[in-house]
Amino acid sequence: MKQATAADLRTLAQDHPVFAVKEIVDKHIESKGAAIPILQEIQNVFGYISPELLRRAGEFSGIPVNELYSIVTFYAQFRMEPTGEHLIQVCHGTACHLAGAERITESIQFETKAGPGKTSDDGMFTMEKVACLGCCSLAPVLTIDEETYGKLSPEKVRKIIKDVRRKNPEHSASKGDNESA
C-alpha cells in the first residue's frame, strides 16, 4: 500500500485524529529510532502535540508516554500548544543580534501584541525567537509562515504585518469559536 502523504494525513486528522495518529505510527514504527520521526510527523499534521495526541502515540507505538514526553520537552522544535494563524520566527543568530534583532522583536511585539513565545489575544500571530535561519547576509531576518524577509527595520516590520493583516480582512477574534465548533 502507498504510504500516506502529509496532505492525506491532514485530511484524515480533521475527522479522525486517532486514526491519523495510528497511520503515522505505522508509517515509522518499523525503522530504528522511530520516536522522533513519529513526533515530528504528528506535529506536522496537527500543528502541535497535545497531551491526548502524545498518549495515543504512546499507545500505538508501545513507546512509554514518559519517554515521548521527555523528547518533546527536550527539543526546541516541538510545541505543546497550538500556534496562532501566522507563525513569525525572528532570527536571533549572531549576525541578526548585531544588526538589532532585539529591536525587531520589540517592534513585532508592538505591532502584533504577541510577545516572544506567545500568541496574540486575537489568535492571529505567534512569535518565536529562533537561533539562526542562516540568512546572515540579510540580517536582521524573520520568517512569517516560512516566507523569509530580510534587511528589516522597524518600519519594514510594520509594513509586513500590515500586509499580512490585509490579506485576512474578514479575520476577527472569533477564530477560537470556529475551532471549538
Binding site: 525503522s31 522522533i36 520521526p37 513526533l39 515530528q40 523528547i71 527539543y75 522544535q77 516541538f78
Partner: peptide, 27 residues
C-alpha cells in the same frame, strides 16, 4: 542512505548526542 531531521537542539552537533538523537532519544 537515510535522512534524519534534527529537532532543534544545538547540543546534537556533538557526536554522541547526535547518535542518541538518531536513536530516538533525548540528545
Amino acid at each position: 542512505l537515510f535522512i534524519r531531521e534534527g529537532a532543534g537542539a544545538f547540543v546534537c552537533g556533538e557526536e554522541t548526542a547526535l547518535l542518541m538523537s538518531i536513536e530516538g532519544k533525548r540528545g
